[in-house]
Amino acid sequence: MISNAKIARINELAAKAKAGVITEEEKAEQQKLRQEYLK
């Protein structure tokens, strides 16, 4: 099960992506976390 901290990070990265200020490194982290969440 995914931790609350990881869910919070997913939401934080989603907000950054929506604002258009996300880095390529953060995009990769976001994809990794989303895949983990979906498992």
Rank of each mutant, 00 (worst) to 15 (best):
G20S: 02
R34M: 15
Q35F: 10
K27D: 05
E29I: 03
K18T: 07
R34P: 00
I2F: 12
I7K: 09
G20T: 02
E25K: 06
E12V: 06
A5S: 10
A14T: 07
I22H: 00
M1H: 11
K39R: 11
K18E: 11
Q31N: 11
A28N: 09
E29Q: 03
A14V: 07
A19E: 08
A8W: 05
I10T: 03
I22Y: 02
K18Q: 08
I7R: 13
E26V: 00
K32S: 07
E24M: 06
A5H: 11
E25P: 05
N4D: 13
E29G: 00
G20H: 03
A28S: 09
K6N: 07
Q30V: 11
I7N: 04
E26P: 00
K39E: 15
A19H: 06
Q35L: 14
Q30T: 03
A17V: 04
I22Q: 03
T23P: 00
K16N: 02
L38K: 10
M1E: 10
A15Y: 06
K6E: 04
S3N: 10
I2P: 09
E26S: 00
A19C: 09
S3E: 09
T23G: 02
K6C: 08
A28D: 11
I10V: 05
M1Y: 13
Q31D: 11
N4V: 13
K6Y: 08
I22E: 01
N11D: 07
A15M: 12
E12D: 05
K32M: 12
K27S: 06
L33Y: 05
E25T: 08
K16I: 03
A28Y: 09
K39M: 14
L38P: 04
L13I: 02
R9A: 02
N4S: 13
I2M: 15
Y37A: 08
A5F: 04
E24P: 10
A15I: 09
Q31H: 11
K39F: 13
Y37G: 06
I10L: 15
N11C: 15
L38H: 11
E26A: 00
V21M: 08
S3F: 04
A15W: 10
E12L: 09
R9V: 01
K16Y: 03
M1K: 13
I10A: 05
K6F: 14
L13H: 00
A8S: 07
R34V: 14
A19Y: 08
S3G: 10
Q30W: 15
K18M: 13
V21G: 04
E12I: 06
A28P: 00
Q30D: 04
K27T: 06
A5V: 10
A15F: 09
L38Q: 12
A17F: 06
K6D: 07
Y37P: 03
V21I: 14
K18C: 12
I10C: 14
I2G: 06
E12F: 06
E36F: 05
V21S: 12
K32G: 04
I10M: 15
E36V: 04
G20P: 00
Q31P: 00
L13N: 00
Q30S: 09
R34A: 10
V21P: 04
I10N: 01
I10W: 15
K18W: 06
I22D: 02
K18S: 08
K27M: 11
K32V: 11
L13D: 00
I10Q: 03
A15R: 13
A17W: 07
A14D: 12
N4A: 15
A14W: 13
A17E: 14
R34F: 14
K18N: 07
K27N: 04
Y37W: 14
K6W: 06
A28Q: 12
E36Q: 07
E12T: 05
T23M: 03
K27E: 12
A17P: 00
T23V: 01
E29W: 03
T23H: 01
A17K: 05
K6Q: 10
Y37K: 04
E26I: 01
G20Q: 04
E26G: 00
A19K: 09
K6G: 05
I7L: 15
E26T: 00
K32Y: 11
T23I: 01
E36H: 05
A17L: 08
L38S: 11
S3H: 08
I7F: 05
